[in-house]
Design a protein around this nucleic acid. Structure first.
Lengths: 138, 138
DNA sequence: TTTTATAGTTAGAAAACTCTAACTATATTT
DNA sequence: AAATATAGTTAGAGTTTTCTAACTATAAAA
């Protein structure tokens, strides 16, 4: 296996593991795996409407409606009616719903901590520069 | 937001997105999200028994049994009876089951490709060295 | 302005997911 | 050897997830 691919795989696995641990901590017993998935997708899409969410989830609209109704009832998201198109509404995360993202943040911070622990300051700056170059838009 | 954390978050999001796209490609319509999750956990644990799998999934043993029975019926995993403890059996991935990991591999290779596209050879070697140092055991 | 398309909803049914309680078989402890 | 613990199974019930078909309301096109 190529060295670079191996390193990425390792990084990815570790971050995944840290996110799993974070979710255990945050104790989302209130949500099923499926509901968590809808919530994360809403977060990723950024206030989608029902049609957009259903498309991204590869589900029908009635199925998606059942899911969002549960998330609304449990106070993880709320509806905002669209002014431009009065047929439509967009889903927003509540304060409680936004906690989901904290599990990602937590894992990312933890990984940053591991990196600072293993590399000296010069190396950290170098790594930052390299990663920034990879994701720079152009 | 700290620069390093931001870079990790970006990397993590991109890899996640690539994995999602890979799953769409591989077309696992045969599996529900839940079943996919059991299968990935079995893969991560490496031939766990029912008790170990249930613990990792935070589910009861009967629930876990229902799930693995479905995966066996669909030929994603199979049982291997333990010689040491005759009450027990371990789950192994079939060839078909191992395809799941390919979605991860695919995403990691794609990310490696993006990196090679944005960095020159010297920078790639540097990045490899830094990541290796982070994950070196000691 | 009538027709067609789009956004979302409702109803009802099937499959998947999850649990508790009670059980069998094998291992371990006393 | 008897008592206790562990690995897994079975049965049955409640909840969640998913679909198709049919509907309302608004927007866009003809």
């Amino acid at each position: 296996m190529e060295k670079l691919v191996e390193a990425i795989a390792r990084l990815s696995r570790e971050i995944g593991h840290m996110e799993g641990a974070a979710k255990d901590q945050f104790d989302f017993k209130e949500l099923t795996l499926t509901q968590m998935n809808y919530l994360e997708t809403i977060s990723n899409l950024g206030n989608p409407n029902l049609t957009e969410l259903a498309a991204e989830m590869h589900m029908t609209k009635p199925t998606t409606k059942v899911a969002v109704d549960k998330l609304i009832e449990k106070n993880f998201i709320f509806r905002v009616k669209s002014d431009e198109d009065r047929r439509s509404a967009h889903f927003h995360l509540t304060v409680k719903g936004k906690l989901i993202n904290r599990t990602h943040d937590f894992a990312h911070k933890q990984m940053a901590g591991l990196i600072r622990q293993k590399l000296d300051e010069t190396e950290v700056v170098l790594l930052e520069m390299l990663l920034e170059k990879v994701f720079r838009i152009q």
